[in-house]
Computed example of a mutant assay.
Amino acid sequence: MSVITEYDSLLLDLDGTVYEGGRAINHAVSSINSSGLPVMYVTNNASRAPEMVAAQLREIGLTETSKSDVMTSAQAACLMAADHIPAGSKVYVLGTDSFRDLAREAGFKVVASADDSPVAVLHGHNPETGWAQLSEAVLSINAGAQYFASNLDSTLPMERGKHIGNGSMVAAVSHATGVTPLSAGKPGPAMFHAAATTLSSSKPLAVGDRLDTDIAGGNAAGMDTFQVLTGVSGYFDLLRAIPAERPTFIAASLQDLTKTPDELRAGAQGGFKALIDGSVLTLSGGTPTSSPIEALRTALEVAWASDMEVSHVDPEGPEAIRVLKSWW
Protein backbone atom coordinates (compact mmCIF):
# COMPACT_ATOMS: atom_id res chain seq x y z
CA MET A 1 0.00 0.00 0.00
CA SER A 2 1.60 3.28 -1.09
CA VAL A 3 1.67 6.38 1.07
CA ILE A 4 -0.70 8.31 -1.21
CA THR A 5 -3.51 5.84 -0.52
CA GLU A 6 -3.53 7.10 3.08
CA TYR A 7 -4.46 10.70 2.13
CA ASP A 8 -7.16 12.55 0.22
CA SER A 9 -5.08 15.45 -1.18
CA LEU A 10 -1.55 16.73 -1.71
CA LEU A 11 -0.49 20.22 -0.61
CA LEU A 12 2.64 20.74 -2.69
CA ASP A 13 5.40 23.28 -2.36
CA LEU A 14 6.81 24.45 -5.71
CA ASP A 15 10.41 25.75 -5.65
CA GLY A 16 12.70 22.84 -4.85
CA THR A 17 9.84 20.33 -4.82
CA VAL A 18 8.11 20.47 -8.21
CA TYR A 19 10.53 22.67 -10.13
CA GLU A 20 13.78 24.56 -9.73
CA GLY A 21 14.18 27.83 -11.59
CA GLY A 22 11.26 26.84 -13.82
CA ARG A 23 12.75 23.45 -14.74
CA ALA A 24 10.75 20.41 -13.65
CA ILE A 25 12.54 18.30 -11.05
CA ASN A 26 13.09 14.68 -12.06
CA HIS A 27 10.03 12.46 -11.48
CA ALA A 28 7.92 15.36 -10.14
CA VAL A 29 5.45 15.76 -13.02
CA SER A 30 4.86 12.05 -13.59
CA SER A 31 4.43 11.45 -9.86
CA ILE A 32 1.86 14.22 -9.48
CA ASN A 33 -0.06 13.22 -12.61
CA SER A 34 -0.23 9.58 -11.54
CA SER A 35 -1.10 10.24 -7.89
CA GLY A 36 -4.84 10.38 -8.51
CA LEU A 37 -5.23 12.94 -5.72
CA PRO A 38 -6.52 16.52 -5.76
CA VAL A 39 -3.60 18.93 -5.55
CA MET A 40 -3.10 22.45 -4.23
CA TYR A 41 0.22 24.17 -4.89
CA VAL A 42 1.07 26.11 -1.73
CA THR A 43 3.99 28.42 -2.38
CA ASN A 44 5.84 31.06 -0.40
CA ASN A 45 6.88 32.71 -3.68
CA ALA A 46 4.83 35.89 -3.93
CA SER A 47 6.40 37.25 -7.11
CA ARG A 48 3.94 35.71 -9.58
CA ALA A 49 0.17 35.77 -9.92
CA PRO A 50 -1.68 32.46 -9.41
CA GLU A 51 -2.60 32.32 -13.09
CA MET A 52 1.06 32.75 -14.07
CA VAL A 53 2.10 29.94 -11.73
CA ALA A 54 -0.62 27.72 -13.18
CA ALA A 55 0.54 28.49 -16.72
CA GLN A 56 4.11 27.54 -15.83
CA LEU A 57 2.93 24.27 -14.31
CA ARG A 58 0.98 23.47 -17.47
CA GLU A 59 4.10 24.15 -19.53
CA ILE A 60 6.12 21.54 -17.63
CA GLY A 61 3.44 18.89 -18.07
CA LEU A 62 0.88 19.45 -15.32
CA THR A 63 -1.71 20.15 -17.97
CA GLU A 64 -4.84 20.19 -15.81
CA THR A 65 -3.62 22.98 -13.51
CA SER A 66 -5.64 26.20 -13.19
CA LYS A 67 -5.19 29.30 -11.03
CA SER A 68 -7.67 27.87 -8.52
CA ASP A 69 -5.12 25.12 -7.82
CA VAL A 70 -2.54 27.65 -6.63
CA MET A 71 -2.27 29.46 -3.31
CA THR A 72 0.55 31.98 -3.02
CA SER A 73 1.83 33.73 0.07
CA ALA A 74 0.81 37.03 -1.56
CA GLN A 75 -2.81 35.87 -1.47
CA ALA A 76 -2.33 34.83 2.15
CA ALA A 77 -0.78 38.19 3.02
CA CYS A 78 -3.77 40.05 1.60
CA LEU A 79 -6.10 37.87 3.66
CA MET A 80 -4.01 38.51 6.78
CA ALA A 81 -3.94 42.27 6.20
CA ALA A 82 -7.73 42.26 5.77
CA ASP A 83 -8.01 40.89 9.32
CA HIS A 84 -6.06 43.87 10.70
CA ILE A 85 -6.97 46.94 8.64
CA PRO A 86 -10.28 48.18 7.21
CA ALA A 87 -11.34 47.63 3.63
CA GLY A 88 -10.36 50.54 1.41
CA SER A 89 -7.23 51.31 3.44
CA LYS A 90 -4.15 52.68 1.70
CA VAL A 91 -1.32 50.15 1.45
CA TYR A 92 2.21 50.28 0.06
CA VAL A 93 3.07 47.01 -1.69
CA LEU A 94 6.72 46.11 -1.85
CA GLY A 95 6.51 43.45 -4.53
CA THR A 96 5.41 42.68 -8.06
CA ASP A 97 2.52 44.10 -10.06
CA SER A 98 0.60 40.86 -9.47
CA PHE A 99 0.86 41.40 -5.70
CA ARG A 100 -0.52 44.92 -6.17
CA ASP A 101 -3.39 43.49 -8.21
CA LEU A 102 -4.18 41.00 -5.45
CA ALA A 103 -4.17 43.82 -2.90
CA ARG A 104 -6.65 45.79 -5.03
CA GLU A 105 -8.84 42.70 -5.43
CA ALA A 106 -8.80 42.38 -1.62
CA GLY A 107 -10.30 45.89 -1.40
CA PHE A 108 -7.23 48.00 -0.62
CA LYS A 109 -6.05 51.21 -2.26
CA VAL A 110 -2.48 50.69 -3.44
CA VAL A 111 -0.26 53.77 -3.19
CA ALA A 112 3.18 54.45 -4.63
CA SER A 113 4.88 56.41 -1.87
CA ALA A 114 5.22 56.81 1.87
CA ASP A 115 4.05 60.39 1.25
CA ASP A 116 0.57 58.95 0.57
CA SER A 117 0.35 57.85 4.23
CA PRO A 118 -0.32 54.11 3.80
CA VAL A 119 -1.60 52.34 6.91
CA ALA A 120 0.18 49.10 6.00
CA VAL A 121 3.14 47.75 4.06
CA LEU A 122 2.75 44.42 2.28
CA HIS A 123 6.14 42.90 1.45
CA GLY A 124 6.62 40.10 -1.07
CA HIS A 125 9.45 38.83 -3.24
CA ASN A 126 10.35 40.82 -6.34
CA PRO A 127 13.71 40.41 -8.13
CA GLU A 128 13.52 44.10 -9.07
CA THR A 129 13.30 45.38 -5.50
CA GLY A 130 16.06 47.87 -4.72
CA TRP A 131 17.11 50.60 -2.32
CA ALA A 132 14.41 53.05 -3.37
CA GLN A 133 11.54 50.59 -2.81
CA LEU A 134 12.96 49.36 0.48
CA SER A 135 13.32 52.96 1.63
CA GLU A 136 9.67 53.74 0.87
CA ALA A 137 8.69 50.78 3.01
CA VAL A 138 10.95 51.95 5.84
CA LEU A 139 9.56 55.48 5.68
CA SER A 140 5.99 54.14 5.76
CA ILE A 141 6.63 51.86 8.74
CA ASN A 142 8.50 54.54 10.67
CA ALA A 143 5.46 56.76 10.12
CA GLY A 144 3.23 54.15 11.74
CA ALA A 145 2.21 51.71 8.99
CA GLN A 146 1.67 48.09 9.99
CA TYR A 147 4.06 45.60 8.40
CA PHE A 148 2.98 42.34 6.73
CA ALA A 149 5.27 39.93 4.88
CA SER A 150 4.23 37.24 2.44
CA ASN A 151 6.98 34.97 3.78
CA LEU A 152 10.34 34.98 5.54
CA ASP A 153 12.34 32.56 3.38
CA SER A 154 15.99 33.61 3.58
CA THR A 155 16.85 31.98 0.25
CA LEU A 156 15.16 31.00 -3.00
CA PRO A 157 16.44 27.87 -4.82
CA MET A 158 17.19 28.51 -8.50
CA GLU A 159 19.08 26.66 -11.23
CA ARG A 160 22.40 28.34 -10.28
CA GLY A 161 21.93 27.75 -6.55
CA LYS A 162 20.37 29.58 -3.64
CA HIS A 163 19.43 33.20 -4.37
CA ILE A 164 18.26 35.96 -2.02
CA GLY A 165 14.80 35.19 -0.64
CA ASN A 166 12.08 37.50 0.62
CA GLY A 167 13.09 37.00 4.24
CA SER A 168 16.52 38.46 3.57
CA MET A 169 14.92 41.59 2.08
CA VAL A 170 12.52 41.76 5.02
CA ALA A 171 15.53 41.62 7.33
CA ALA A 172 16.84 44.84 5.81
CA VAL A 173 13.55 46.65 6.48
CA SER A 174 13.30 45.22 9.99
CA HIS A 175 16.87 46.25 10.74
CA ALA A 176 16.10 49.82 9.62
CA THR A 177 12.80 50.10 11.51
CA GLY A 178 13.07 47.75 14.48
CA VAL A 179 9.71 46.27 13.39
CA THR A 180 9.18 42.55 12.79
CA PRO A 181 6.37 41.88 10.31
CA LEU A 182 3.48 39.51 10.67
CA SER A 183 4.18 36.75 8.13
CA ALA A 184 1.36 35.11 6.20
CA GLY A 185 3.33 32.32 4.57
CA LYS A 186 4.98 29.16 5.72
CA PRO A 187 5.91 28.10 8.40
CA GLY A 188 2.63 29.50 9.68
CA PRO A 189 -0.31 27.08 9.42
CA ALA A 190 -2.80 29.48 7.79
CA MET A 191 -1.96 28.68 4.16
CA PHE A 192 -2.19 24.94 4.80
CA HIS A 193 -5.58 25.22 6.49
CA ALA A 194 -6.89 27.47 3.70
CA ALA A 195 -5.64 25.07 1.02
CA ALA A 196 -7.23 22.06 2.71
CA THR A 197 -10.50 23.92 3.09
CA THR A 198 -10.49 24.88 -0.59
CA LEU A 199 -10.06 21.21 -1.54
CA SER A 200 -12.60 20.02 1.08
CA SER A 201 -9.79 17.77 2.28
CA SER A 202 -9.95 16.11 5.68
CA LYS A 203 -6.60 14.29 5.47
CA PRO A 204 -4.07 16.19 3.34
CA LEU A 205 -0.38 15.39 3.02
CA ALA A 206 1.90 18.45 3.12
CA VAL A 207 4.89 18.04 0.80
CA GLY A 208 8.02 20.16 0.55
CA ASP A 209 11.79 20.43 0.41
CA ARG A 210 12.48 22.89 3.21
CA LEU A 211 12.32 21.94 6.88
CA ASP A 212 11.89 25.42 8.37
CA THR A 213 8.97 26.38 6.10
CA ASP A 214 7.23 23.49 4.34
CA ILE A 215 7.66 20.85 7.03
CA ALA A 216 7.37 23.18 10.02
CA GLY A 217 4.24 24.72 8.48
CA GLY A 218 2.59 21.39 7.76
CA ASN A 219 3.44 20.17 11.25
CA ALA A 220 2.05 23.36 12.76
CA ALA A 221 -1.18 22.76 10.85
CA GLY A 222 -1.44 19.29 12.39
CA MET A 223 -0.82 17.50 9.08
CA ASP A 224 1.47 14.64 8.12
CA THR A 225 4.50 15.90 6.21
CA PHE A 226 6.58 14.50 3.34
CA GLN A 227 10.15 15.78 2.92
CA VAL A 228 11.91 15.52 -0.46
CA LEU A 229 15.67 15.88 -0.85
CA THR A 230 15.49 17.82 -4.11
CA GLY A 231 15.75 21.35 -2.78
CA VAL A 232 17.04 23.35 0.18
CA SER A 233 17.22 20.97 3.16
CA GLY A 234 19.65 18.07 2.90
CA TYR A 235 20.82 15.01 4.79
CA PHE A 236 22.62 16.79 7.61
CA ASP A 237 19.79 19.31 7.99
CA LEU A 238 17.46 16.41 8.71
CA LEU A 239 19.89 14.85 11.19
CA ARG A 240 19.93 18.10 13.16
CA ALA A 241 16.27 19.01 12.73
CA ILE A 242 14.45 20.26 15.80
CA PRO A 243 11.22 18.40 16.70
CA ALA A 244 8.96 21.02 15.11
CA GLU A 245 10.74 20.55 11.77
CA ARG A 246 10.87 16.75 11.60
CA PRO A 247 8.84 15.23 8.76
CA THR A 248 6.59 12.22 8.97
CA PHE A 249 8.14 10.77 5.81
CA ILE A 250 11.61 11.17 4.27
CA ALA A 251 11.82 10.79 0.48
CA ALA A 252 14.42 11.19 -2.23
CA SER A 253 11.88 12.81 -4.58
CA LEU A 254 8.16 12.85 -5.34
CA GLN A 255 8.65 9.46 -6.97
CA ASP A 256 8.70 8.00 -3.45
CA LEU A 257 4.97 8.71 -3.10
CA THR A 258 4.56 5.17 -4.42
CA LYS A 259 6.48 3.66 -1.48
CA THR A 260 4.79 2.36 1.66
CA PRO A 261 4.54 4.53 4.78
CA ASP A 262 6.86 2.21 6.70
CA GLU A 263 9.55 2.50 4.01
CA LEU A 264 9.51 6.28 4.30
CA ARG A 265 9.59 6.67 8.07
CA ALA A 266 12.74 7.07 10.14
CA GLY A 267 13.98 3.62 11.12
CA ALA A 268 16.60 0.96 10.40
CA GLN A 269 16.76 0.08 6.69
CA GLY A 270 19.09 -1.35 4.08
CA GLY A 271 21.04 -3.41 6.58
CA PHE A 272 22.46 -0.30 8.23
CA LYS A 273 22.94 0.25 11.96
CA ALA A 274 23.38 3.54 13.79
CA LEU A 275 24.70 4.25 17.26
CA ILE A 276 25.22 7.59 18.96
CA ASP A 277 27.80 8.46 21.60
CA GLY A 278 27.49 12.05 22.76
CA SER A 279 27.25 14.08 19.58
CA VAL A 280 28.97 11.53 17.32
CA LEU A 281 26.80 9.17 15.30
CA THR A 282 28.39 5.95 13.98
CA LEU A 283 26.90 4.41 10.85
CA SER A 284 27.76 0.82 9.94
CA GLY A 285 26.49 -2.15 7.95
CA GLY A 286 24.64 -1.89 4.67
CA THR A 287 24.88 -3.88 1.45
CA PRO A 288 26.12 -3.03 -2.07
CA THR A 289 22.53 -2.21 -3.06
CA SER A 290 21.72 -0.10 0.00
CA SER A 291 20.94 3.54 -0.75
CA PRO A 292 22.04 6.80 0.91
CA ILE A 293 18.49 7.59 1.96
CA GLU A 294 18.10 4.18 3.64
CA ALA A 295 21.18 5.06 5.63
CA LEU A 296 19.67 8.45 6.44
CA ARG A 297 16.41 7.00 7.72
CA THR A 298 18.42 4.58 9.85
CA ALA A 299 20.47 7.42 11.31
CA LEU A 300 17.44 9.64 11.87
CA GLU A 301 15.74 7.20 14.23
CA VAL A 302 18.77 7.31 16.51
CA ALA A 303 19.59 11.00 16.09
CA TRP A 304 16.04 12.15 16.78
CA ALA A 305 15.86 10.02 19.94
CA SER A 306 19.00 11.66 21.33
CA ASP A 307 19.12 14.72 23.53
CA MET A 308 22.22 15.98 21.73
CA GLU A 309 22.62 17.45 18.25
CA VAL A 310 24.74 15.33 15.91
CA SER A 311 28.04 17.07 15.22
CA HIS A 312 29.75 14.33 13.25
CA VAL A 313 28.91 11.09 11.44
CA ASP A 314 31.56 8.36 11.57
CA PRO A 315 31.14 5.66 8.88
CA GLU A 316 32.37 2.14 9.59
CA GLY A 317 32.76 -0.26 6.67
CA PRO A 318 32.77 0.18 2.90
CA GLU A 319 29.04 0.59 2.41
CA ALA A 320 28.68 3.22 5.11
CA ILE A 321 31.63 5.11 3.60
CA ARG A 322 30.07 4.86 0.12
CA VAL A 323 26.64 6.21 1.03
CA LEU A 324 27.98 8.94 3.28
CA LYS A 325 29.74 10.49 0.28
CA SER A 326 26.30 11.15 -1.22
CA TRP A 327 25.14 13.10 1.83
CA TRP A 328 27.33 16.11 1.03
Rank of each mutant, 00 (worst) to 15 (best):
H312I: 05
N142R: 15
T180A: 09
A195R: 02
A295F: 11
Q146H: 13
G107K: 05
V18T: 08
S135E: 13
G317T: 10
M191L: 11
L152P: 04
L264D: 02
S291C: 04
D83R: 13
V207I: 14
G267N: 13
S34W: 08
Q146S: 12
S150F: 09
G267F: 12
S98N: 05
P247G: 05
A24E: 14
T213I: 08
K162A: 10
K259W: 03
N45V: 14
P118S: 02
L122Q: 07
L229A: 05
M169D: 02
I25E: 03
M40H: 06
T155C: 03
D307S: 14
R240L: 10
A216N: 01
Q227C: 07
N219M: 10
F226D: 14
A145P: 07
V29N: 04
A252V: 13
G208P: 13
A221N: 08
S290C: 13
R48S: 09
V70S: 05
E59Y: 03
S2W: 01
A87L: 14
F108H: 03
S183M: 04
R23H: 07
M80F: 04
L239D: 00
P187Q: 14
D307N: 15
S35W: 07
I60L: 14
A76M: 12
M52R: 12
A216F: 04
V70I: 15
A114P: 07
G22N: 11
G270V: 15
T63F: 09
T180N: 09
A112C: 12
G217S: 10
V232T: 15
S306A: 14
S279V: 14
S290N: 11
G208Q: 06
G21R: 05
K186F: 04
A77Y: 02
D277R: 11
Y235M: 03
L211I: 10
L12V: 06
R160T: 15
L122E: 03
Q255D: 09
L94I: 11
A190Q: 15
D209N: 06
A221P: 05
G278F: 06
V179P: 00
T129D: 14
E20G: 02
S113N: 12
L14R: 00
G36M: 06
M308I: 14
I215F: 06
C78F: 01
P261R: 03
E105L: 03
S140H: 08
L57E: 01
L62R: 03
I85R: 04
G178A: 08
M1P: 10
A137E: 06
K162P: 09
G267H: 10
E309G: 04
H125A: 07
G161L: 10
E51S: 13
E6D: 13
G231V: 09
A252D: 13
